[in-house]
């Protein structure tokens, strides 16, 4: 189990290093930050001063190692725009994004999994077909269409809810609703197929044959076994939550890290974009690491297999 965990941690660290390298290469090689920050007509000496100040004249590998070193010291650089610390800018915006993503994840889990499990246990029923249809609808509607439709109905036509901003909890309802829909569909579908597969296994037949109640069969034998593939999907969904936040925050003018990303990308604010890429990639890598560890807890077979390696 220890080697299993260590390999996972090592691969996670390697992935983060790759993301850092990617961010560095793309952002540094794509254009001259001095020209963008100072404009095309800036006098040469101020351009030179700017380049010297930000270390843009060093060879690229030197800049890269300087960059890695500063990150190791938890220094993510300062925003070229307003000279505030990049990591502070990101941390400032983080609570707003979490205020959307955490409730969204809870709603997705709370509705998606039970709906999928219920559909699997009542196959071919009206409820099952309903769940399938709704889940297909859920993940084929792009979030920006969903968001705009919700605004059109609940904000413009009915006037029940505000269409954007972040002044009260009522402002969070439409964004959360928009973000939840797709994930509910995906989770419902995966839980359904995972549960159907488990219910066809011989050990379920055995459990029923030895006279266990339906309740016990489902709760003690089927659900724990179906939880492994479901946990995998939850790990993947963290990424789509963050990507969803970028779109949804832009529709509802919600001041989270998604909007920060779009704004700093269009301002070409290198330090902030790099910092955001790192924060997003790290949270995804950590989420997937948790999923890997959860496997070990959920599935004793996996534990045995990996120690045998």
């Amino acid at each position: 189990m220890l080697t299993y965990m260590l390999t996972r941690v090592f691969r996670a660290a390697l992935t983060i290093l790759l993301v850092m390298t990617f961010a560095f290469v793309v952002l540094r090689l794509s254009g001259d930050p001095a020209a963008i920050m100072l404009g095309p007509d800036a006098p040469t000496d101020s351009v030179d001063a700017f380049r010297a100040e930000w270390g843009l004249d060093d060879p690229i590998w030197k800049q890269y190692f300087a960059y890695l070193k500063s990150i190791a010291q938890l220094d993510f650089g300062i925003s070229m725009r307003d000279r505030s610390s990049a990591i502070m800018l990101v941390l400032e915006r983080l609570p707003a994004t979490l205020a959307l993503t955490v409730p969204t994840l809870l709603i997705q889990l709370g509705i998606g999994i039970p709906a999928g499990v219920y559909a699997a246990l009542h196959r071919q029923s009206v409820a099952d077909r309903g769940v399938i249809m709704l889940s297909i609808f859920g993940f084929t509607i792009p979030s920006f269409v969903m968001g705009l439709l919700l605004v059109l109905v609940f904000a413009v036509t009915l006037g029940w809810l505000p269409s954007g901003g972040q002044d009260s909890w009522r402002h969070a309802i439409l964004p959360i609703l928009t973000m939840s829909v797709g994930g509910i569909g995906i989770l419902a579908r995966f839980s359904r197929s995972a549960m159907i597969e488990v219910m066809g296994q011989p050990y379920i037949r055995t459990a029923m044959a030895k006279g266990l109640s339906w309740r016990d069969v489902v709760w003690k034998h089927a659900l724990p076994n179906a939880s492994v593939p479901i946990v995998t999907i939850v790990g993947f969904m963290v990424g789509s939550l963050i990507a969803g936040a970028v779109v949804v925050e832009s529709i509802f003018s919600w001041p989270g890290i998604g909007r920060l990303l779009i704004v700093s990308v269009s301002n070409r604010d290198l330090a902030v974009v790099q910092c955001l890429l790192l924060v997003i990639a790290s949270s995804m890598v950590i989420a997937n690491l948790c999923v890997d560890f959860a496997y070990g807890l959920l599935d004793p077979r996996l534990r045995a297999k990996t120690t045998a390696h």
């Binding site: 990617f22 952002l27 990424g239 789509s240 070409r268 890429l277 995804m284």
Partner: peptide
């Protein structure tokens, strides 16, 4: 396989945002 891991570590939308906005 490591490259595939990397691809899975960043939401594609965010990766493309970075690339498109800068190029």
């Amino acid at each position: 396989l490591v490259l595939a891991d990397f691809q899975a570590a960043l939401p594609f939308l965010i990766l493309s945002l970075a690339v498109l906005a800068f190029f």
